[in-house]
Amino acid sequence: MNIWLILPVYNEGARFVDVLTAILSLHPHLNIVVIDDGSVQPVQIPTQSKTVTLLRHPVNLGKGSALKTGAEYAFSHKAEAIIFMDTDGQHLPQDISMFIHLLNQKFDVVIGSRRPSLHTPFVRLFGNKLASIYINVLFGVYVSDLISGFRALSFRAYQLLKWTSPRYGVETEMIAKLGKNKHLLKYTEFPIEPIYIDKYKGTSIIDALKILANTIWWRLS
């Protein structure tokens, strides 16, 4: 199966280089698309990269738009499935193998759900759990880590789950659409090791409220 890895980057600096180097050492033959979402310091690809494509947005559009840019590029280059991974170091490149394995098992949607641990901030744990229950009530699909950015989609799934959220709502929108198309798609989740880095990065309470408002629209539309 032709699987591509999509890496959205925004102002990650050296952290991204470490992540990419680790990925390349484990998966040297994987096609990788890096989307620099208008970083202040433009992203540089290490010279030892085998097949890495760098796409750069001239302005910061948001994570949802960056993922879409990468997905469209990969599928237009004959990718059959894509894996999204955050580049701030919170996901382990070792878990990519599991995604590849499950995609080869014909799963359309694979979600790497962060396993709750003693290091998980309580607010995140509680908020995430509450959001999962809420989405389950609204869309009839339960995903234990709704906002995990480590996930994979087949081409069929991408066509059905194509999102419009330009920013952080993208993960929730995908799950909402998965709920509406769950009879057409084979999906699964598996536990991944959580690494919490920046307390103030990711989805804020304001983002969460906006996403909450959008869920009503996604349900009605």
Binding site: I45, Q48, S49, T51, T53, T69
Partner: peptide, 22 residues
């Protein structure tokens, strides 16, 4: 405007795509 900017940015990104091959 957001939609138009997104579209223009995406097209610029595709046009200037840099692929590194060993």
């Amino acid at each position: 405007l957001q939609r138009q900017i997104e579209e223009i940015s995406r097209n610029i990104a595709y046009k200037n795509a840099k692929t590194k091959k060993r």
